[in-house]
Design a protein around this nucleic acid. Structure first.
Lengths: 368, 368
DNA sequence: TTGAAAGCGCTAACAG
DNA sequence: CTGTTAGCGCTTTCAA
């Protein structure tokens, strides 16, 4: 039975853990009068078992309400895989990204979890450690980071650590030049904003502001697109029209009020259009415009970014840029399962973003 | 070293699984020149280890990039706990519920995962089975169900199965009378809608419609509140003013257009106010009103439910009902860790919902 | 303070 | 077709 007693003195209590709650394969085997190996074969379809035996085992399992413990299987590397997404929020645009990931994970029969962390690095590290300890198959990062040396070093460490346990890291952001071996998936930002900005210029706008610059890689890229759009049309960039603010409606509103308030004395110099970092900020601009008695798009054209569900429902409907969030999530998840090696072109993907023309932009007043 | 060779013939290959990828405690112990037991003690702080030995082990772990495998610990019932939330969506109102759960799980040092499933029962069952196999500490259900006998039986089975492995089930919905032993957390619906409906009556409305009835427990409760609100004010309920439609903006819009379209010939009989199942539907009503040339609130008062972030930003801002979604999530998660026994009053909680008065309601035209 | 060994629940190689 | 056995990575008891 037990190997105890082979030799040496008897122990009163045996070492090791005590049995956990619940029915085990051993219980089923015993009830069916077979060995655990045979019972195991029944549940895994491997090896052959006589019909009568199978029947008995299945019956015993049913009677005892047996549920296999996949933790034990996982320990041998044959349990379900776990895909982890670590990001800053689950609401808004992230929900499509997450849905895309869940979809792919489910298709692969893997477990999936999306966790959010604040700006606290300790918390992030704790989360990464926890899922490393759980031997997650792969980990995807949603926060694009600030691109600082500290950020790059942190990501490098995560990548190294994950590889060392046979896991895999994927970032939802543009490729990090210093870390070409780390897989990335992103959506077009610079080009898309640049195109939208040029569109405003072509409508006749000359004074175009940008609201929502921030210490964030994605903000830099969008501001960059704004700059390039202006420059390519020969319009000089006026730094005083680039307003910093966090990506929150209320802050966007405040920023817009301040910006537009600067021109009460000289309305002719007031910007006639605003590019924003996001739809959330654009909605803040709407609110500010209403307070200041400015009509959109007559007095002020506004362009958002993200195409949140309500962009089409606000009045006037918001012209914006729609990234392929779901595709980003799907691809990121696929990368975890495919694990392309360095050099593989699949390692870095950028999805296109679409310009969604609605009613919040028009030629400036003077031009009509 | 190995127990093989004690007796019997030599095997070429040993049975059982082969070593998994990654550094194990055994590797660390070997590198530090101690036994695995000692190394284990170092990492768990149990038992005593000399400073010199501890130092060596820690150093070895560092050098080898050791990460403990909590799957092995979990097998012995001492790993991190896992809290699972199964629901229908992660966006919208669910995101607050989920955030509340995550917060509590994190506070308890537990892992947390939110999974979505469609109406397919097989998918749901597969998910439950998977997490049961993972020996989840507890499972929370977000879908309120339709209250049918089939639903009740399904929940009863889940509860039984989860208990049998020492797990725990919590439902985010009102108590199921047939299953008083299953923990529930919910927010006030009937009462809140009733109160809001009466408020409309007191403003002078007599013809009040309800849009968004559906085969869902929560729909029944809200329609019920609407009915009670009218009746308590002595207004007869007109079934033709209760419109069925799924909880989607586009459907709400269609439903509203149809309803209001019935009265083009006799505008005096047109409903002057609409209670809706949700803010999403209310926004559909806004859209329909705009198309039909009806002004809100002058020609039509509208009340939503949920208080989604944009309820305050649409024009006119939406009067609605705000449930305590975050509190529901938090409490549900806490129940998983507290595990109240049958009879404990904590087993069933209902949080209050607040009436949020904004600009989408006013006395009907004739009354001003 | 340390190590040997047994055991958590399961799978797989091998022998019968 | 079925049982025996070793082992996955870890903890814990007992003895030294």
């Amino acid at each position: 039975m037990s190997r105890a007693g082979h030799q040496g003195p008897r122990r009163e209590t045996s070492p090791g853990p005590s049995r956990t709650e619940g029915v085990t394969l051993r219980d089923v085997a015993r009830a069916a009068g077979v060995s655990v190996a045979t019972a195991s074969r029944v549940f895994n379809g491997k090896g052959s078992v006589s019909d009568r035996t199978r029947e008995r085992v299945l019956q015993a399992a049913e009677d005892l309400h047996y549920t296999v413990n996949t933790l034990a299987k996982s320990m041998m590397g044959i349990g379900p895989r776990l895909l982890v997404y670590i990001t800053f929020a689950r609401a808004g645009t992230q929900s499509d990204v997450i849905d895309g990931m869940e979809q792919v994970a489910t298709r692969h029969g893997a477990m999936f979890t999306a966790n959010t962390v604040g700006p606290d690095i300790h918390q992030e590290r704790a989360l990464v450690r926890m899922y490393m300890q759980q031997r997650a198959t792969g980990m995807i990062f949603g926060k694009s980071g600030d691109g600082s040396a500290e950020y790059v070093e942190r990501i490098r460490r995560y990548d190294e650590a994950l590889r060392s346990i046979g896991s895999y890291l994927v970032l939802c952001r543009p490729e990090i030049p210093q870390l070409p071996q780390v897989a990335t998936v992103s959506y077009e930002q610079t080009m898309a904003v640049s195109r939208a900005t040029r569109n405003l210029v072509m409508l006749g706008h000359r004074r175009i502001a940008f609201i929502g610059d921030w210490d964030q890689d994605s903000a830099h890229r969008r501001v960059d697109g704004y700059r390039r759009g202006l420059e390519s049309e020969g319009i000089p960039v006026d730094p005083s029209l680039i307003i910093r603010c966090p990506n929150i409606t209320a802050d966007g509103c405040r920023a817009a009020e301040q910006l537009l308030g600067r021109f009460v004395e000289r309305p002719d110099e007031r910007p006639t259009a605003v590019m924003t970092f996001s739809d959330d900020i654009a909605i803040g601009v709407y609110r500010a415009a209403r307070r200041l008695g400015l009509r959109i798009p007559d007095d002020l054209s506004v362009v958002g970014f993200d195409d949140i569900p309500f962009a089409a429902d606000i009045t006037p409907s918001l012209t914006t840029i729609r990234p392929s969030f779901r595709a980003v999530g799907q691809r990121a998840a696929e990368l975890v399962f495919k694990r392309p090696e360095p050099g593989n072109p699949d390692l870095h993907t950028t999805f296109e973003s679409r310009f969604i023309l609605r009613d919040s932009i028009a030629p400036p007043a003077g031009r009509r």
